[in-house]
Amino acid sequence: MFVSIKRLGRLSFEKVYYYTVQKEDVAQSEFEDFLTRMEGCPDYAEQLGEILQFIKEIGEKHGAREAHFKHERAADALPPPYYIQPGKPNKFGLRLYCIRLSEEVVILLNGDLKTKNNPEECPNCRKHFRFANSLARKLDEAIKNREVILVDRELQFDDDFEIEL
């Protein structure tokens, strides 16, 4: 499966540019899919709002410091550790997987309501967790090989660079 990285124009802020990915033959990007599905869960509306406000605040004012993200093996996730859900509808809450490449570049992916401590055991999050980690490892390798470079907030690729997962 090929995926392409897209920049989110609406989330291109002074401190951070946010990106997402789109799988081939899929109409929506991963982050748009997350928003569409999670918007339909009223129990988690406040939590979702807090995560989006967090994304906005980091982008506009603070930068994507490592402290603000939860490490998920090669990838990352929001909300950060120790987050207390408003209302506490369940033990673990929403998880949005992402890849923090630098304090200025974050790739927002997909996620869901986490139901188990280990994401590999959670039927909702497992595929998003695995996808985020596969992509993170591919990007790490591409950055080492200089097929992908970061110039401040901009991601730049070799003309023939492709991501196959």
Binding site: S4, R7, L8, G9, R10
Partner: peptide, 21 residues
Amino acid sequence: MKTPQVIDDLNLFDKILENTS
């Protein structure tokens, strides 16, 4: 070198934030 395409429309992001307390 090339840069990623841009997705301009993300209205749902703003809509969700508007509905957040």
